[in-house]
């Protein structure tokens, strides 16, 4: 589904990603962990098409298409979804109209007509229930005055509504209390299927107790320095990141 080859990217002439290689197949959940400033969120931003990042080397294919050639909206319509670390508040744009517009654009891209008001309402109710999202929030202005947890749950609600192929969750667990974390994870687990895939970016192992990944990668200094299965996450929890930093440094000096 997603193939990243030797991806290098910079922001304001500062090299952030220094050669990422990663393959994600349908049905898989990949966790990307790593210390602060290792490039985790930058990778998410580059994949979603944030304009202040410049790709300097490498390529990314998404469902066989060159992802880096697409505008952010086309990436979304092709089925890529970024759950934001800091969802934006947009007063005056209602949550529901925003979703209606987004869904209509995604459907149009697939050659489908927009849902009529009744179908849309039914879908919205079904998904609200699925991810335990408060109906009151649906009719409010987009994220305006939402608590941190409500904003993150809104991201998962949007994810449920738009049914992307690949979802990237950028530190969705940050700022969540244990109950919110459980609700968000439950939602994601219900949405997991053999046709879609998830990349979960997180600093802590905690989220991975609820959303069990197939693969765990450790990002450090713009590169994936170690990959493994869910046991790697436990090891990191126990030992921290320092031993990996050491390893990475040794590797760099031997080269």
């Amino acid at each position: 589904m997603l193939t990243i080859k030797n991806l290098h990217a910079e922001v304001e002439e500062k090299q952030i990603l220094k050669g990422i290689n990663l393959s994600v197949n349908a049905g898989e959940v990949h966790a990307i962990m790593g210390p602060n400033g290792s490039g985790k969120s930058s990778l998410a931003s580059v994949l979603a098409g944030r304009e202040n990042y410049q790709v300097t080397q490498g390529e990314v294919f998404f469902s066989g298409l060159n992802l880096l050639d697409m505008s952010p909206e086309v990436r979304a319509r092709e089925g890529l979804f970024l759950a934001f670390q800091y969802p934006i508040e947009i007063p005056g744009v209602s949550n529901i109209n925003f979703l209606k517009t987004a869904l209509a654009e995604i459907r149009a891209h697939k050659g489908l007509p927009p849902l009529d008001a009744k179908e849309f309402l039914r879908l919205s109710r079904e998904k609200q229930k699925l991810v335990e999202f408060d109906a009151q929030l649906v009719n409010r202005s987009l994220n305006e005055g939402f608590s941190g947890g409500e904003k993150k749950r809104n991201e998962i609600f949007q994810l449920a509504m738009l049914e992307p192929k690949l979802s990237i969750l950028d530190e969705t667990d940050s700022g969540l209390d244990i109950d919110a974390l459980r609700i968000v994870s439950k939602g994601v687990n219900k949405l997991r299927s053999e046709n879609n895939a998830f990349i979960i970016i997180t600093h802590y192992q905690r989220l991975l107790e609820y959303i069990v990944p197939d693969f765990v990668h450790v990002l450090y200094d713009g590169r994936i320095v170690k990959s493994g299965t869910k046991e790697l996450a436990l090891e990191l929890e126990e030992k921290g990141y320092d031993w990996l930093k050491e390893e990475a440094r040794e590797k760099a000096t031997t080269i």
Binding site: E51, E73, A76, L82, I90, P91, G92, T101, A102
Partner: peptide, 30 residues
């Protein structure tokens, strides 16, 4: 326009022009 707001809308599949339209309406909403 807030670049962040524009990117957020586009990242949900809303085209740039439509996103600007939504933001103008939102601005006028008050």
């Amino acid at each position: 326009f807030s670049e962040e707001a524009l990117f957020y809308l586009r990242a949900r599949g809303i085209g740039e022009e439509a996103a600007k339209g939504l933001l103008i309406n939102a601005f006028a909403f008050d």
